[in-house]
Nucleic acid binder design. Structure first.
Lengths: 221, 221
DNA sequence: GCGTGGCACGTACGCTGTACGTGCGTCAAC
DNA sequence: GTTGACGCACGTACAGCGTACGTGCCACGC
């Protein structure tokens, strides 16, 4: 028996196996051993199907939120939870970020994150702003991680860096060794730590009574 | 006379006017008043054309880099330069981030940014890591800004937040007013400032002799 | 027995990217 | 001046796409 979830799962499998370009209604139908038009009894159109794929992948994020842990650790754990499913469904992750889905699938992570940030001592407005920075960083990082590896097997772009003319781009030439190597785990943790520390500073400043705004036009510099 | 750049420009125009989905070889040819197959004398295929579109948009980023300015200000200026063209070509920006292009078009920004970060006092390794965090934030932010506004005119998703069940998501319900309003300028600057301050802290710590790594496993918290 | 509605499916239409062949204009060699 | 080569615009053709529409099967309420 055909069902919406069977169709969505088949789509996710197909995307992971052969990439998002390989997805067509005919292909999915063949995968399920049914006629093409049967799909339309469960899914209004292809676009909605891809939205459902995004929603499905997003809902697989596991939130083992530990209220006992310090808020900084909870921030880290939540970010890593996202990253984990992005690694598990790398090609589907591209479709997740490329379609803006306005469903409730992404609300739970938001709820958890905001709760954590309120616990950190931010007020509502700051918490939302922090959340947006946080999301921007995580999405931007994952986009690079999954985008840089189309097949997710070989490391492609390193060669390109090496053949840059050092006369035109001296700094890039000099730092080529560092640009070519990229331990994704380490890079992600580095940025995450930077972000958490920035949050900690903001939270501390807030606790000590300095109010409002980015408040850094006068930052030492 | 047909030329590669005429074709690319027509593609960019079409994308901005009617969205990336409207792009087809036939459509572009019609736009230019030529036959479809004539395009293939200047562009190997559609995928390469879209890569060229991405490259073209990326190359429009204006770097008025002022070596006299403090490095923190240069970081801000460079980020805003990206954001400016993303706003000028919002729909093309989506294709820029969705295709990973390994060309030299993106090298100049990298050169400038790394140069700025070295000036800030980071060594090569740190500079590259900082750059990656920086890119992740900018890309993530712009993705939300341009993705959230498909037509770039009306503000869509706010309504969705309002209809979330406050019983299931109390924090989201409570913070709905803040979630619904989003001054993109202010949000971007907020995150940018957070990032710059985090960089400043790192640079200062480095200058005072604390070496290596994220070094925050023991961060206070 | 008989509508009625849900579901699987075939057919068909307009669209897509692009391989291939054709014809025309210009320029180099003789 | 003739001829060959070459670049480029273009038409045709084909496989594949999303999906509107119609058809037939089957289970169910009356």
């Amino acid at each position: 028996m055909l069902s919406r979830t069977r169709i969505v799962n088949a789509a996710v499998d197909l995307i992971e196996r052969e990439g998002a370009d390989a997805v067509s209604m005919r292909r999915i139908a063949a995968e399920l051993g049914v006629g093409v038009m049967s799909l339309y009894n469960h899914v209004p159109n292809k676009s909605a199907l891809l939205d459902a794929v995004a929603e499905s992948v997003l809902s697989k994020v596991e939130f083992t939120d530990d209220p006992a842990a310090h808020w900084t650790e909870r921030v880290r754990i939540q970010a890593r939870a996202f990253r984990q499913i992005a690694h598990h469904y790398p090609r589907s992750t591209m479709v997740v970020v490329s379609r803006q889905l306005q469903s409730t699938a992404g609300i739970l992570p938001v709820e958890r994150a905001l709760s954590t940030l309120l616990e950190a001592g931010f007020d509502g407005r700051e918490a939302v702003q922090m959340l947006r920075v946080y999301i921007a960083y995580v999405v931007g990082s994952l986009l690079r991680e999954v985008g840089v590896t189309p097949t997710f097997a070989p490391v492609r772009p390193d060669i390109r860096i090496a053949e840059v003319d050092p006369a035109l781009f001296p700094v890039v030439g000099e730092l080529a060794p560092h640009l070519m190597e990229c331990d994704h785990d380490e890079e992600f943790e580095f940025g995450l730590e930077l972000l958490v520390q920035a949050m900690t500073v903001r939270a501390a400043r807030r606790a000590s009574g300095v109010a409002g705004g980015p408040g850094a036009e006068d930052a030492r510099g």
